[in-house]
Write a protein that binds this DNA or RNA. Sequence first.
DNA 1: TCGGTTCTGGAGAGGTCTCTCTAATACGGA
DNA 2: TCCGTATTAGAGAGACCTCTCCAGAACCGA
Lengths: 196, 196
Amino acid sequence: MPRPPRYDVDDLLDAALALTVANTPTGVSVAELARHAGVPSGSVYHRFPSRAVLLAELWLRTVDRFQEGFLPCLADRDACRGARTAARYVVDWSRTDPDSARLLLYARRDFVPQEWPAEQTARAAAQDRRLRSALRALAGRLDVDLERLVIAVVDLPYAVVRRHLADGGAIAAGVADTVENCADTLLRARLPEPRR
Amino acid sequence: MPRPPRYDVDDLLDAALALTVANTPTGVSVAELARHAGVPSGSVYHRFPSRAVLLAELWLRTVDRFQEGFLPCLADRDACRGARTAARYVVDWSRTDPDSARLLLYARRDFVPQEWPAEQTARAAAQDRRLRSALRALAGRLDVDLERLVIAVVDLPYAVVRRHLADGGAIAAGVADTVENCADTLLRARLPEPRR
DNA sequence: TCGGTTCTGGAGAGGTCTCTCTAATACGGA
DNA sequence: TCCGTATTAGAGAGACCTCTCCAGAACCGA
Protein backbone atom coordinates (compact mmCIF):
# COMPACT_ATOMS: atom_id res chain seq x y z
CA MET A 1 0.00 0.00 0.00
CA PRO A 2 2.88 2.40 0.25
CA ARG A 3 3.99 4.65 -2.53
CA PRO A 4 6.36 2.69 -4.76
CA PRO A 5 9.94 3.84 -5.05
CA ARG A 6 10.74 5.89 -8.10
CA TYR A 7 14.51 5.50 -8.04
CA ASP A 8 16.53 2.33 -7.86
CA VAL A 9 19.30 1.77 -5.33
CA ASP A 10 21.46 0.13 -7.95
CA ASP A 11 21.05 3.12 -10.24
CA LEU A 12 22.35 5.36 -7.51
CA LEU A 13 25.30 3.08 -6.96
CA ASP A 14 25.98 3.03 -10.68
CA ALA A 15 26.08 6.81 -10.71
CA ALA A 16 28.37 6.76 -7.70
CA LEU A 17 30.63 4.33 -9.53
CA ALA A 18 30.85 6.63 -12.52
CA LEU A 19 31.74 9.56 -10.30
CA THR A 20 34.28 7.57 -8.34
CA VAL A 21 36.03 6.56 -11.52
CA ALA A 22 35.95 10.12 -12.84
CA ASN A 23 37.36 11.46 -9.57
CA THR A 24 38.25 9.52 -6.45
CA PRO A 25 36.12 7.63 -3.93
CA THR A 26 36.07 10.37 -1.34
CA GLY A 27 35.72 12.92 -4.12
CA VAL A 28 32.15 11.77 -4.65
CA SER A 29 29.75 14.15 -2.94
CA VAL A 30 26.14 13.29 -2.36
CA ALA A 31 25.15 16.62 -3.86
CA GLU A 32 27.00 15.89 -7.07
CA LEU A 33 25.74 12.34 -7.16
CA ALA A 34 22.17 13.56 -6.84
CA ARG A 35 22.64 16.07 -9.62
CA HIS A 36 24.33 13.51 -11.81
CA ALA A 37 21.63 10.91 -11.30
CA GLY A 38 18.77 13.37 -11.50
CA VAL A 39 17.59 12.51 -8.02
CA PRO A 40 16.83 14.92 -5.20
CA SER A 41 19.30 14.64 -2.38
CA GLY A 42 16.50 13.81 0.02
CA SER A 43 15.82 10.62 -1.90
CA VAL A 44 19.44 9.63 -1.65
CA TYR A 45 19.35 10.08 2.11
CA HIS A 46 16.11 8.17 2.25
CA ARG A 47 18.07 5.11 1.07
CA PHE A 48 21.46 5.67 2.64
CA PRO A 49 21.77 7.16 6.09
CA SER A 50 25.07 8.78 5.18
CA ARG A 51 27.56 9.24 2.43
CA ALA A 52 29.89 6.76 4.16
CA VAL A 53 27.25 4.03 4.02
CA LEU A 54 26.69 4.71 0.34
CA LEU A 55 30.38 4.42 -0.42
CA ALA A 56 30.58 1.27 1.67
CA GLU A 57 27.72 -0.27 -0.25
CA LEU A 58 29.39 0.56 -3.53
CA TRP A 59 32.60 -1.10 -2.39
CA LEU A 60 30.87 -4.19 -1.04
CA ARG A 61 28.72 -4.62 -4.13
CA THR A 62 31.74 -4.45 -6.39
CA VAL A 63 33.75 -6.95 -4.35
CA ASP A 64 30.78 -9.32 -4.31
CA ARG A 65 30.42 -9.14 -8.05
CA PHE A 66 34.09 -9.85 -8.54
CA GLN A 67 34.20 -12.75 -6.14
CA GLU A 68 31.09 -14.27 -7.68
CA GLY A 69 33.17 -15.41 -10.63
CA PHE A 70 36.59 -15.56 -9.03
CA LEU A 71 35.90 -17.97 -6.18
CA PRO A 72 34.49 -20.70 -8.45
CA CYS A 73 37.70 -20.56 -10.48
CA LEU A 74 39.73 -21.25 -7.37
CA ALA A 75 37.46 -24.18 -6.52
CA ASP A 76 37.98 -25.95 -9.83
CA ARG A 77 38.35 -29.73 -9.43
CA ASP A 78 41.58 -29.52 -11.38
CA ALA A 79 43.66 -27.35 -9.05
CA CYS A 80 46.21 -26.47 -11.67
CA ARG A 81 43.60 -25.34 -14.14
CA GLY A 82 41.85 -23.49 -11.30
CA ALA A 83 44.88 -21.34 -10.64
CA ARG A 84 45.31 -20.55 -14.30
CA THR A 85 41.69 -19.61 -14.90
CA ALA A 86 41.64 -17.56 -11.72
CA ALA A 87 44.57 -15.47 -12.95
CA ARG A 88 42.87 -15.07 -16.30
CA TYR A 89 39.60 -14.19 -14.65
CA VAL A 90 41.05 -11.10 -13.00
CA VAL A 91 42.04 -9.77 -16.39
CA ASP A 92 38.91 -10.79 -18.23
CA TRP A 93 36.60 -9.41 -15.60
CA SER A 94 38.47 -6.11 -15.62
CA ARG A 95 38.32 -6.02 -19.39
CA THR A 96 34.59 -6.58 -19.35
CA ASP A 97 33.87 -4.03 -16.67
CA PRO A 98 36.74 -1.54 -16.53
CA ASP A 99 34.88 0.90 -14.31
CA SER A 100 34.33 -1.67 -11.60
CA ALA A 101 37.92 -2.78 -11.99
CA ARG A 102 39.11 0.76 -11.53
CA LEU A 103 37.14 0.88 -8.33
CA LEU A 104 38.82 -2.26 -7.01
CA LEU A 105 42.17 -0.68 -7.77
CA TYR A 106 41.51 1.47 -4.75
CA ALA A 107 41.78 -0.08 -1.35
CA ARG A 108 39.02 -0.38 1.19
CA ARG A 109 40.88 2.26 3.18
CA ASP A 110 39.98 4.79 0.52
CA PHE A 111 36.29 4.34 1.27
CA VAL A 112 36.53 5.67 4.83
CA PRO A 113 35.82 2.35 6.54
CA GLN A 114 36.20 3.90 9.99
CA GLU A 115 32.80 5.50 9.40
CA TRP A 116 31.07 2.31 8.32
CA PRO A 117 28.40 0.80 10.54
CA ALA A 118 29.14 -2.56 12.11
CA GLU A 119 27.01 -4.48 9.65
CA GLN A 120 28.98 -3.37 6.64
CA THR A 121 32.28 -3.85 8.39
CA ALA A 122 31.19 -7.41 9.10
CA ARG A 123 30.27 -8.02 5.47
CA ALA A 124 33.71 -6.82 4.39
CA ALA A 125 35.33 -9.15 6.89
CA ALA A 126 33.26 -12.04 5.55
CA GLN A 127 34.40 -11.27 2.02
CA ASP A 128 38.00 -11.36 3.18
CA ARG A 129 37.50 -14.66 4.93
CA ARG A 130 35.86 -16.25 1.90
CA LEU A 131 38.73 -15.22 -0.33
CA ARG A 132 41.44 -16.24 2.08
CA SER A 133 39.98 -19.63 2.78
CA ALA A 134 39.55 -20.36 -0.94
CA LEU A 135 43.17 -19.42 -1.54
CA ARG A 136 44.38 -21.52 1.37
CA ALA A 137 42.46 -24.52 0.13
CA LEU A 138 43.87 -24.22 -3.37
CA ALA A 139 47.41 -23.76 -2.08
CA GLY A 140 47.00 -26.98 -0.14
CA ARG A 141 45.75 -28.87 -3.16
CA LEU A 142 48.58 -27.55 -5.29
CA ASP A 143 51.10 -28.15 -2.53
CA VAL A 144 52.42 -24.67 -3.08
CA ASP A 145 53.37 -21.89 -0.72
CA LEU A 146 50.34 -19.70 -0.01
CA GLU A 147 52.30 -16.51 -0.55
CA ARG A 148 53.47 -17.77 -3.92
CA LEU A 149 49.93 -18.65 -4.98
CA VAL A 150 48.59 -15.27 -3.94
CA ILE A 151 51.30 -13.59 -5.94
CA ALA A 152 50.49 -15.67 -9.00
CA VAL A 153 46.71 -15.42 -9.06
CA VAL A 154 46.00 -12.15 -7.27
CA ASP A 155 48.91 -9.75 -7.01
CA LEU A 156 50.33 -10.20 -10.45
CA PRO A 157 47.08 -9.98 -12.43
CA TYR A 158 45.98 -7.09 -10.26
CA ALA A 159 49.08 -5.05 -10.96
CA VAL A 160 49.02 -5.74 -14.66
CA VAL A 161 45.41 -4.66 -14.88
CA ARG A 162 46.27 -1.58 -12.91
CA ARG A 163 48.99 -0.53 -15.28
CA HIS A 164 46.83 -1.07 -18.33
CA LEU A 165 43.90 0.85 -16.89
CA ALA A 166 46.04 3.61 -15.43
CA ASP A 167 45.86 6.18 -18.18
CA GLY A 168 42.20 5.68 -18.92
CA GLY A 169 42.97 3.07 -21.54
CA ALA A 170 41.45 -0.32 -22.12
CA ILE A 171 42.98 -3.75 -21.62
CA ALA A 172 44.29 -5.33 -24.79
CA ALA A 173 43.17 -8.79 -25.80
CA GLY A 174 46.48 -10.59 -25.28
CA VAL A 175 46.97 -9.48 -21.70
CA ALA A 176 45.05 -12.38 -20.24
CA ASP A 177 47.33 -14.81 -22.04
CA THR A 178 50.43 -13.09 -20.74
CA VAL A 179 49.11 -13.10 -17.21
CA GLU A 180 48.07 -16.72 -17.36
CA ASN A 181 51.48 -17.64 -18.68
CA CYS A 182 53.25 -15.75 -15.92
CA ALA A 183 51.07 -17.33 -13.25
CA ASP A 184 51.77 -20.73 -14.71
CA THR A 185 55.50 -20.08 -14.73
CA LEU A 186 55.47 -18.98 -11.11
CA LEU A 187 53.53 -22.01 -9.93
CA ARG A 188 55.55 -24.57 -11.84
CA ALA A 189 58.87 -23.34 -10.52
CA ARG A 190 58.60 -24.78 -7.04
CA LEU A 191 62.16 -24.80 -5.89
CA PRO A 192 63.87 -21.48 -5.36
CA GLU A 193 66.92 -21.59 -7.57
CA PRO A 194 70.26 -20.84 -5.91
CA ARG A 195 71.11 -17.28 -6.75
CA ARG A 196 74.07 -16.16 -8.89
CA MET B 1 68.26 41.29 3.03
CA PRO B 2 64.79 39.75 3.11
CA ARG B 3 63.28 38.16 6.12
CA PRO B 4 64.41 34.53 6.24
CA PRO B 5 61.75 31.84 5.96
CA ARG B 6 60.66 30.30 9.20
CA TYR B 7 59.06 27.16 7.80
CA ASP B 8 60.56 24.67 5.45
CA VAL B 9 58.87 23.51 2.28
CA ASP B 10 59.93 19.93 2.92
CA ASP B 11 58.42 20.04 6.38
CA LEU B 12 55.10 21.03 4.89
CA LEU B 13 55.32 18.22 2.38
CA ASP B 14 56.18 15.81 5.17
CA ALA B 15 53.08 16.86 7.03
CA ALA B 16 51.06 16.49 3.85
CA LEU B 17 52.47 13.00 3.43
CA ALA B 18 51.43 12.04 6.92
CA LEU B 19 47.91 13.31 6.31
CA THR B 20 47.66 11.64 2.93
CA VAL B 21 48.60 8.33 4.46
CA ALA B 22 46.17 8.80 7.32
CA ASN B 23 43.37 9.67 4.93
CA THR B 24 43.54 9.93 1.15
CA PRO B 25 45.35 12.35 -1.16
CA THR B 26 42.34 14.52 -1.87
CA GLY B 27 41.31 14.19 1.76
CA VAL B 28 44.17 16.47 2.75
CA SER B 29 42.91 20.00 3.31
CA VAL B 30 45.22 22.95 3.51
CA ALA B 31 43.48 24.03 6.69
CA GLU B 32 44.15 20.70 8.36
CA LEU B 33 47.70 20.59 7.05
CA ALA B 34 48.39 24.03 8.50
CA ARG B 35 46.98 23.01 11.88
CA HIS B 36 48.90 19.75 11.82
CA ALA B 37 52.19 21.41 10.94
CA GLY B 38 51.70 24.40 13.24
CA VAL B 39 51.89 26.82 10.36
CA PRO B 40 49.45 29.60 9.53
CA SER B 41 47.56 28.93 6.34
CA GLY B 42 48.88 32.15 4.86
CA SER B 43 52.40 30.76 5.02
CA VAL B 44 51.31 27.65 3.21
CA TYR B 45 49.81 29.73 0.43
CA HIS B 46 52.93 31.84 0.37
CA ARG B 47 54.78 28.74 -0.85
CA PHE B 48 52.16 26.95 -2.88
CA PRO B 49 49.72 28.86 -5.03
CA SER B 50 47.07 26.23 -4.51
CA ARG B 51 46.31 22.96 -2.83
CA ALA B 52 46.64 21.21 -6.18
CA VAL B 53 50.20 22.43 -6.61
CA LEU B 54 51.07 21.26 -3.14
CA LEU B 55 49.70 17.80 -3.81
CA ALA B 56 51.50 17.73 -7.14
CA GLU B 57 54.76 18.61 -5.46
CA LEU B 58 54.28 15.86 -2.91
CA TRP B 59 53.69 13.32 -5.66
CA LEU B 60 56.63 14.47 -7.76
CA ARG B 61 59.00 14.55 -4.81
CA THR B 62 58.08 11.02 -3.84
CA VAL B 63 58.48 9.65 -7.35
CA ASP B 64 61.86 11.37 -7.65
CA ARG B 65 63.05 9.84 -4.41
CA PHE B 66 61.96 6.42 -5.51
CA GLN B 67 63.53 6.67 -8.94
CA GLU B 68 66.76 7.94 -7.48
CA GLY B 69 67.59 4.45 -6.30
CA PHE B 70 65.53 2.43 -8.75
CA LEU B 71 66.94 3.68 -12.04
CA PRO B 72 70.57 2.86 -11.12
CA CYS B 73 69.52 -0.72 -10.42
CA LEU B 74 68.10 -1.03 -13.92
CA ALA B 75 71.32 0.37 -15.35
CA ASP B 76 73.55 -2.25 -13.71
CA ARG B 77 76.31 -3.46 -16.04
CA ASP B 78 75.16 -6.99 -15.35
CA ALA B 79 71.64 -6.88 -16.82
CA CYS B 80 70.48 -9.98 -15.04
CA ARG B 81 71.62 -8.76 -11.67
CA GLY B 82 70.10 -5.38 -12.51
CA ALA B 83 66.65 -6.86 -12.90
CA ARG B 84 66.94 -8.80 -9.67
CA THR B 85 68.16 -5.87 -7.60
CA ALA B 86 65.50 -3.63 -9.14
CA ALA B 87 62.76 -5.99 -8.03
CA ARG B 88 64.32 -6.16 -4.57
CA TYR B 89 64.69 -2.41 -4.46
CA VAL B 90 60.96 -1.84 -4.70
CA VAL B 91 60.43 -3.94 -1.61
CA ASP B 92 63.40 -2.62 0.35
CA TRP B 93 62.57 0.99 -0.37
CA SER B 94 58.98 0.44 0.72
CA ARG B 95 60.14 -1.30 3.86
CA THR B 96 62.43 1.59 4.71
CA ASP B 97 59.86 4.30 4.04
CA PRO B 98 56.40 2.78 4.26
CA ASP B 99 54.64 6.12 4.25
CA SER B 100 56.15 7.16 0.95
CA ALA B 101 55.41 3.71 -0.39
CA ARG B 102 51.80 4.04 0.62
CA LEU B 103 51.67 7.27 -1.30
CA LEU B 104 52.99 5.63 -4.44
CA LEU B 105 50.29 3.00 -4.09
CA TYR B 106 47.94 5.69 -5.24
CA ALA B 107 48.01 6.71 -8.86
CA ARG B 108 48.82 10.13 -10.20
CA ARG B 109 45.11 10.39 -11.08
CA ASP B 110 44.36 10.57 -7.38
CA PHE B 111 46.31 13.81 -7.06
CA VAL B 112 43.99 15.80 -9.34
CA PRO B 113 46.51 16.23 -12.16
CA GLN B 114 44.01 18.12 -14.30
CA GLU B 115 44.56 21.07 -11.95
CA TRP B 116 48.35 20.95 -12.14
CA PRO B 117 50.20 23.78 -13.85
CA ALA B 118 52.08 22.97 -17.03
CA GLU B 119 55.46 22.88 -15.34
CA GLN B 120 54.51 20.12 -12.95
CA THR B 121 52.74 18.16 -15.65
CA ALA B 122 55.95 18.32 -17.66
CA ARG B 123 58.00 17.06 -14.75
CA ALA B 124 55.69 14.11 -14.34
CA ALA B 125 56.00 13.33 -18.03
CA ALA B 126 59.78 13.47 -17.75
CA GLN B 127 59.68 11.01 -14.87
CA ASP B 128 57.61 8.66 -16.97
CA ARG B 129 60.00 8.93 -19.88
CA ARG B 130 63.04 8.27 -17.70
CA LEU B 131 61.49 5.14 -16.29
CA ARG B 132 60.23 3.83 -19.58
CA SER B 133 63.49 4.33 -21.37
CA ALA B 134 65.45 2.63 -18.61
CA LEU B 135 63.11 -0.34 -18.77
CA ARG B 136 63.30 -0.52 -22.55
CA ALA B 137 67.07 -0.48 -22.45
CA LEU B 138 67.21 -3.27 -19.91
CA ALA B 139 64.70 -5.35 -21.83
CA GLY B 140 66.90 -5.02 -24.87
CA ARG B 141 70.00 -6.09 -22.99
CA LEU B 142 68.21 -9.05 -21.48
CA ASP B 143 66.60 -9.90 -24.80
CA VAL B 144 63.28 -10.21 -23.03
CA ASP B 145 59.82 -8.98 -23.84
CA LEU B 146 59.32 -5.49 -22.39
CA GLU B 147 55.93 -6.40 -20.96
CA ARG B 148 57.44 -9.39 -19.24
CA LEU B 149 60.22 -7.30 -17.72
CA VAL B 150 57.80 -4.69 -16.45
CA ILE B 151 55.74 -7.39 -14.85
CA ALA B 152 58.79 -8.89 -13.16
CA VAL B 153 60.46 -5.77 -11.79
CA VAL B 154 57.58 -3.32 -11.40
CA ASP B 155 54.12 -4.83 -11.31
CA LEU B 156 54.87 -7.84 -9.20
CA PRO B 157 56.92 -6.11 -6.49
CA TYR B 158 54.43 -3.27 -6.46
CA ALA B 159 51.47 -5.52 -5.88
CA VAL B 160 53.19 -7.54 -3.19
CA VAL B 161 54.16 -4.38 -1.35
CA ARG B 162 50.60 -3.17 -1.68
CA ARG B 163 49.16 -6.25 -0.09
CA HIS B 164 51.61 -6.18 2.79
CA LEU B 165 51.05 -2.51 3.50
CA ALA B 166 47.30 -2.70 3.02
CA ASP B 167 46.14 -3.13 6.57
CA GLY B 168 48.58 -0.68 8.06
CA GLY B 169 51.12 -3.40 8.65
CA ALA B 170 54.81 -3.46 7.91
CA ILE B 171 56.70 -5.49 5.34
CA ALA B 172 58.34 -8.61 6.71
CA ALA B 173 62.01 -9.24 6.13
CA GLY B 174 61.67 -12.22 3.82
CA VAL B 175 59.42 -10.51 1.30
CA ALA B 176 62.29 -9.08 -0.73
CA ASP B 177 63.72 -12.57 -1.19
CA THR B 178 60.38 -13.92 -2.35
CA VAL B 179 59.93 -11.09 -4.80
CA GLU B 180 63.44 -11.41 -6.17
CA ASN B 181 62.93 -15.12 -6.62
CA CYS B 182 59.65 -14.61 -8.47
CA ALA B 183 61.18 -11.98 -10.73
CA ASP B 184 64.05 -14.30 -11.46
CA THR B 185 61.70 -17.15 -12.28
CA LEU B 186 59.69 -15.00 -14.67
CA LEU B 187 62.73 -13.74 -16.51
CA ARG B 188 64.42 -17.11 -16.87
CA ALA B 189 61.39 -18.79 -18.35
CA ARG B 190 61.59 -17.27 -21.79
CA LEU B 191 59.50 -19.64 -23.83
CA PRO B 192 55.79 -19.79 -23.15
CA GLU B 193 55.10 -23.39 -22.31
CA PRO B 194 52.35 -25.09 -24.26
CA ARG B 195 49.30 -25.02 -22.06
CA ARG B 196 47.52 -28.01 -20.53
C1' DT C 1 70.63 53.19 12.07
C1' DC C 2 67.60 52.83 8.35
C1' DG C 3 65.38 51.10 4.04
C1' DG C 4 63.95 47.41 1.25
C1' DT C 5 62.34 42.97 0.83
C1' DT C 6 60.40 38.65 2.15
C1' DC C 7 57.72 36.28 5.28
C1' DT C 8 54.26 35.74 9.04
C1' DG C 9 49.89 35.51 11.09
C1' DG C 10 45.31 35.55 11.09
C1' DA C 11 40.75 37.26 9.82
C1' DG C 12 37.09 36.55 6.71
C1' DA C 13 34.55 36.37 1.98
C1' DG C 14 32.47 33.23 -0.68
C1' DG C 15 31.55 28.70 -1.86
C1' DT C 16 30.32 23.79 -1.29
C1' DC C 17 28.95 20.00 1.26
C1' DT C 18 26.35 16.88 4.55
C1' DC C 19 22.42 16.04 6.56
C1' DT C 20 17.73 17.43 8.52
C1' DC C 21 13.18 18.46 8.14
C1' DT C 22 8.58 18.91 6.33
C1' DA C 23 4.78 19.36 3.19
C1' DA C 24 3.08 17.21 -0.69
C1' DT C 25 2.41 12.97 -3.38
C1' DA C 26 1.23 8.36 -5.09
C1' DC C 27 -0.16 4.04 -4.44
C1' DG C 28 -2.60 -0.61 -2.42
C1' DG C 29 -5.92 -2.56 0.43
C1' DA C 30 -10.31 -2.39 2.83
C1' DT D 1 -13.79 5.76 -2.15
C1' DC D 2 -10.79 6.76 1.44
C1' DC D 3 -6.94 5.81 4.62
C1' DG D 4 -2.26 4.71 5.89
C1' DT D 5 2.26 4.39 4.50
C1' DA D 6 6.51 5.01 1.90
C1' DT D 7 8.52 8.13 -0.94
C1' DT D 8 9.56 12.55 -3.17
C1' DA D 9 11.23 17.12 -3.50
C1' DG D 10 13.63 20.74 -2.17
C1' DA D 11 14.83 24.44 1.12
C1' DG D 12 18.15 25.59 4.42
C1' DA D 13 21.12 25.23 8.92
C1' DG D 14 25.57 24.66 10.14
C1' DA D 15 30.18 23.16 9.26
C1' DC D 16 34.24 23.31 6.75
C1' DC D 17 37.29 24.64 3.15
C1' DT D 18 40.05 27.37 -0.29
C1' DC D 19 42.06 31.27 -1.14
C1' DT D 20 42.73 36.49 -0.55
C1' DC D 21 44.35 40.18 1.72
C1' DC D 22 47.12 43.14 4.52
C1' DA D 23 49.35 44.96 8.56
C1' DG D 24 53.28 44.03 10.96
C1' DA D 25 57.65 41.40 11.93
C1' DA D 26 62.34 40.00 10.87
C1' DC D 27 66.36 40.27 8.63
C1' DC D 28 70.56 42.20 5.64
C1' DG D 29 73.26 45.49 3.31
C1' DA D 30 74.58 50.15 3.10
